[in-house]
Write a protein that binds this DNA or RNA. Structure first.
Length: 236
DNA sequence: GCGACAG
DNA sequence: ATCTTGTCGC
């Protein structure tokens, strides 16, 4: 039994699985958690929704005052299955096609998923940074890897996430009271504390920071427009 | 061998 | 992620 049997993934995926792991390992030494080099005025949020065999990627661009500047999307057939730790191989192809349609170059891109808080420090936010070459942050709703203590109960309270060598790899932030905290980790070209700072700075009255929240909202909305769903009464 | 396991 | 209505609680 190996990882391959997870979710009943079978032999034809085996070779790809090993290749993917090697790709991630080959990129790990190119992660650069350096401070941002310019001020942050415009950011982007990325999220995907699915309908049957299609994946729909949404990219929302907003400025520091939360004004929406642009919304672009792209959908295509998805072939790669969901495998914990290999999310990038399933979602990045669609995202990159949507990225081609974006006309604004944001200062930071927020992804729905983890950054370096990953077994091989290669979460989707980190992997994506090698393609777009812009600082990225991973915003996840649950843990994939690492140890952490539950943060305080007030908005803004946080605690760090550590890997098996007790090295910081991200943080858990209470972005809203009485709500489960979000997992934040730098993707690339940004520090852990900058990622924490901006994740909170872009959080308003909701659990998810605005970039990711808006992207999720539009991914659902546009999906319903492209793939209309109706009940037995014929009503949408 | 067993438990964990982003979306 | 997705299938799905109402419902309990802040």
């Amino acid at each position: 039994m190996n990882k391959l049997d997870y979710n009943h993934i079978h032999d034809f995926i085996d070779l790809d699985y090993k290749k993917c792991i090697n790709i991630q390992k080959s990129l790990i030494n190119q992660i650069s958690l350096i401070p941002l080099s310019k001020e942050v005025n415009v950011v982007a949020g990325v999220d995907l929704s699915f309908y049957k065999e299609f994946g729909l990627a949404i990219i929302v661009i907003i400025d520091k005052n939360f004004n929406e500047l642009e919304v672009k999307y792209h959908y295509q057939e998805i072939e790669f299955p969901y495998i914990p730790g290999l999310l990038a191989f399933r979602e990045l192809p669609v995202f990159l096609n949507a990225w081609k349609k974006v006309t604004i170059r944001p200062d930071i891109v927020f992804f729905d998923g983890h950054g370096i808080a990953h077994p091989r420090k290669m979460g989707i936010a980190t992997h994506a940074s090698f393609f777009i070459e812009i600082p990225t942050i991973g915003i996840a709703k649950s843990k994939l890897y690492g140890n952490f203590d539950e943060p305080g109960n007030n908005k803004g309270d946080y605690s760090y996430i550590y890997d098996k060598k007790d090295k910081k790899i991200g943080c858990v932030i209470r972005t809203r009271e009485k709500t489960k905290p979000v997992f934040v980790s730098p993707g690339n070209f940004i520090t852990i504390d900058e990622a924490r700072y901006f994740a909170l700075k872009f959080s308003t009255r909701y659990k998810l920071p605005e970039p990711t929240r808006l992207a999720h909202y539009y991914s659902q909305k546009i999906k319903n427009e492209i793939f209309p769903r109706r009940n037995a009464n014929g009503k949408i």
